[in-house]
């Protein structure tokens, strides 16, 4: 039984990783197709890094991701704080439900409705519309990452601070913000991945001039196999690994801190 379950797990992991490894393996293959390995080459990576259009798109993608994550983290933090401070249960539930709408909506609905929205307001489609959209769909995840930390914070902590003479602003700066920083960091990371991962929303609201990696991959993939995309996926895989590693270390740090505080409490 135990052996069987291990075999099953190994199979699942093979299925999960085979396509990704396949993709990366062929980024080193001579030739132009993802069939019959033709021998090792760096050619596709050289092509990739010599492709000014691709490099510009990578830069744009990163810019949108970083900028939108930063702004979304800021707004999301303020949002989480104000939701947490809402004393009326009904209001809070309504706010939370509204917050979650973009979390559960299918991408196409977000994309289509934003497209109508930008067209109605005559916002030009391109960098601005993509950036605004990314900020918009990243905010709710930031809020959701921060709220649990706020809930974990004992109210007596603030009372104690006030009791010791801290002003409202000092309470926020010295107590609340440091306490929820892990949540803010996690929110930022999640926002970053949401942005890098998004295709559908960007596809709807990007005009002709502006493109992100996802959109570019889509249009190239529709034309068939292009091993430059494989090289790109190799680069992105490394990038993802770094991001995951960073996120993991962050979480481990949190877990350790929590464990320590629990031990201290005992």
């Amino acid at each position: 039984m135990k052996k069987l379950s291990r075999v099953y797990l190994v199979l699942v992991f093979i299925v999960l990783y085979l396509p990704i490894l396949y993709l990366i393996a062929y980024s080193f293959s001579q030739g132009t197709t993802m069939t019959n390995y033709h021998g090792f080459t760096w050619q596709h990576y050289r092509d990739l890094f010599a492709d000014p259009r691709m490099l510009a798109i990578v830069a744009d993608t990163l810019l949108v991701a970083l900028l939108s994550s930063l702004i979304a983290t800021l707004i999301g933090t303020l949002g989480a704080l104000s939701i947490h401070r809402t004393s009326k249960r009904v209001t809070r539930d309504v706010l939370l439900s509204l917050n979650n709408i973009l979390m559960v909506s299918p991408d196409v609905i977000i994309g289509a409705s934003f497209l109508i929205f930008f067209t109605t307001l005559k916002v030009p489609l391109g960098f601005t519309s993509v950036l605004l959209s990314h900020i918009a769909f990243e905010i709710p995840i930031v809020v959701l990452m921060i709220l649990p930390r706020l809930r974990e914070m004992s109210p007596s902590l603030l009372c104690a601070a006030a009791d010791l003479g801290a002003t409202t602003r000092q309470q926020l700066n010295k107590i609340i913000i440091p306490f929820i920083t892990p949540g803010i960091m996690a929110g930022f990371f999640m926002a970053l991945t949401y942005s890098l991962d998004d295709f559908a929303v960007t596809f709807f609201v990007t005009g002709n001039g502006f493109s992100t990696l996802s959109v570019e991959i889509y249009s190239r993939a529709r034309q068939g196999i292009n091993l430059e995309i494989n090289a790109l996926s190799g680069v992105m895989f490394i990038f993802s690994l770094l991001l995951v590693g960073g996120y993991y270390l962050l979480q481990q740090g949190n877990a350790k801190r929590r464990q320590r505080s629990q031990e201290a409490a005992q």
Partner: peptide, 25 residues
């Protein structure tokens, strides 16, 4: 974490991989 990792790979890339995997050869 190994389960989560593939979700960090762009969905388009994963779809693209299957174009290769499922192709005639």
């Amino acid at each position: 974490l190994l389960v989560i990792l593939p979700t960090w790979i762009n969905i388009l890339l994963k779809a693209y991989a299957f174009i290769g995997i499922f192709s005639q050869d």
